[in-house]
Amino acid sequence: MSARAANTIRARPTRRTFLQTCALGAAAFGSGRAIDRASGTAGLPSSTLTDKQADKSRVVIARDPGLRGSGTSLDSDRLLKLLDRAIQSFYGADSPLDAWKRVVRPGECVGLKINCLAGRGASTTVKLVEAVIERLQQAGITNIVVWDRLNSDLESAGFRAGSSRPGVQFIGNDTAGYEDGLAIHGSVGSLLSRTLTRTCDAVISLPVLKDHGIAGMTFALKNFFGAIHNPNKYHLTVGDPYVADVNMLPAIRQKIRLHIGDATAVQYEGGPSFLPQWSWRFNGLVVGTDPVALDYVGWQLIEQKRASEGMKSLAALNRAPNYIATAADSGHRLGTNDPKRIERLEI
């Protein structure tokens, strides 16, 4: 067997200067304040919160109806601006760079956990990954690892072997390997990806919002099935309590800094595969640090779309993602699924 070289993004991003970024970001919003919940900023400085806000998990839903211009593919520049707006708004920062500095510190190795099992159309989009890499580099991060389960999955979503950019590596767990010992919590016993445990100091999760035929839906919490060696064992009973238990594993819980949910296209039925007839051009990003709140909000978006299309709810199909409530319960406390405690900010 021979090791496979690291991957790289197939479509190379255009170069953008930091000053340009700042100018764009500053023109955006900034009224909100950072929320430092659960797996949030891990010791990095947080914004000042009012008492009322501190009780809530902020979830920013940023949309741009013109994200695809007049065509069908995403416009990279607009996507970058959308990302800036979302992050800046989430942290209530004065500029995108200010916001990113609350997420990561120079010198850290930052992992981007994408979801690319379904190939193009229902995976984290290459252009979003490009945009995040660009901003991280501008924030002084020189070591970035984009990872998921298999090299072949990365490739099928548009990432390919042979990094052409310094400081960025694309790697599947099949190449990086897994830890020797089991990580155990509740119903789960798994070997963890070494990319997560050894390579990355911090992880930014870039999940994809979509329906899931077995687990109900997949978004922030379930994205970390891609960090374990045996996800096939944990889809029983609509993923409950397995999804919550996987997220309790310390290496996962402690390293996640931020979730940037890819909702540019939402597979609201037929997922996790890409089936274009049920792919909704939502043209949005869903950002937060509370994965339970993100999942709750994501679930509601899927249900709203299903209802508008005259489809049955996930509950009616016996696949309500009850693992979200489990993740919020007193045995897990991974975040909140209580709408009263979620500050949903639509921009």
Binding site: S2, A3, R4, L191, R194, H229
Partner: peptide
């Protein structure tokens, strides 16, 4: 197993 898992699926 960890060492074995390091080997790629080639």
């Amino acid at each position: 197993l960890g060492l074995r898992l390091l080997l790629p699926a080639s």
